[in-house]
Computed example of a mutant assay.
Amino acid sequence: MKKTVLAFSRVTPDMVERLEQDFEVIVPHPKHGDIAAQFNDALPHAHGLIGAGRPLGEKQLAGAGKLEVVSSVSVGYDNYDVAYLSSRGILLTNTPDVLTESTADLGFALIMSSARRVAELDAWTKAGNWKASVGAEQFGTDVFGKTLGIVGMGNIGAAVARRGRLGFNMNILYSGNSRKTALEQELGAQMRSLEQLLAEADFVCLVVPLSDKTRHLISHAQLKMMKPGAILVNISRGPVVDEAALIEALRNNTIRGAGLDVYEKEPLAESPLWQLPNAVTLPHIGSATSETRQAMAWRAMDNLTAALKGQRPQDLVNPQAFKG
């Protein structure tokens, strides 16, 4: 008898077709009624879950008696209660690496857009305000040759740093838990404490995972440490930044601007950020290219399939739960 896989988001017809070669697949659909009710009804039968974005812990999974694996189509896994999953022997997998370059592209796009006021001046032009040659009120700031500070020099942070150093001759600073000697040699990167980095960098790019330690890592005090002309870019997780503090800093011109792809509450239904011309706001699209999302989907399916066949998945978040 085939095992049952329950999909909960980011699952395409191609994915379903592939999964159906080995498993019974249940995909909740709006045409069949309430999505949450369909998910809860199917949960007791599921050996595996695949998708992204749904919080999953003891409250949501208490009735999932057959569950063996949660395969997340994402790099971040802060939506999942890892300790609870591990206590039940449920494997959790994610999809690292495959979205590194796409997310780094997006991070640098936010740097460029914020510095040169791309979104703001696009709206200004379309509103019919371009009557003559632009003046100082429309000027942006250079990126080339400036100092880029990376908070969290993992794979994505390193990819952003390479774009800055090799493409724009930027000086690279970084802060984190460990020294990156290879990147120091490759890019001339210099390690700093967070406080030093904030004081020196013209652009600060956040690329850290969300944890108790990094929640509100950037708040009132840290924003005041930044240069008045500096720009903050967040492509990590929304709660890494104290959003109220950032809004205040942008309103008061404590910093020059911000480029944001993530927020404390998503989707961003309404926000004071929308009224701030020095904030670029994107709808969490770091990995949102067709090529990258397909690669993530295939990686997630490989992880799911391995787990349900009793094999160790390639991308196992909680190895302590694997009993193979």
Rank of each mutant, 00 (worst) to 15 (best):
R256F: 12
E266Q: 04
A127H: 05
D14P: 09
P55M: 09
N94S: 01
M301W: 08
D122H: 07
N171A: 11
T93A: 06
A42P: 04
R215N: 08
D78R: 01
L148Q: 10
L19C: 06
N94W: 09
N303R: 10
T214E: 05
H45D: 15
H220K: 15
T4Y: 03
L85A: 03
D97F: 11
N40M: 10
E264I: 02
F23L: 03
G238W: 02
S175H: 07
W130H: 10
V69K: 12
A42E: 13
T93M: 08
L187A: 04
K131D: 12
A119F: 14
N79E: 14
G167D: 07
L106S: 06
P267V: 03
T4S: 13
H47G: 02
I247H: 00
S102Y: 11
F322S: 13
S175K: 06
G154M: 10
L110W: 01
I255G: 11
L268S: 01
K180P: 04
P228R: 11
Y263G: 05
T125A: 15
L43W: 09
R116T: 13
E248I: 13
E270A: 15
L197P: 02
G76W: 09
G149A: 08
W124D: 07
G286R: 01
L187G: 09
A136Q: 13
V262K: 06
L250P: 03
V11K: 05
I285N: 07
A306F: 09
P313I: 11
D81Q: 13
G176S: 10
G76Y: 02
L276C: 03
N253G: 08
T289R: 00
R192V: 06
L223C: 03
V5S: 00
A189F: 02
L217N: 02
L91E: 11
A269G: 11
V98M: 14
G229V: 02
R293C: 01
L187S: 06
Q38F: 06
H216T: 03
T289H: 04
S133C: 08
N252Q: 15
I156P: 02
I150L: 04
M170C: 14
L19F: 00
V134K: 12
Q320T: 11
S114R: 02
A158L: 06
K59A: 14
A52Y: 15
T103D: 08
G149H: 09
L232Y: 12
W274Q: 04
L173N: 12
S178I: 06
P277A: 05
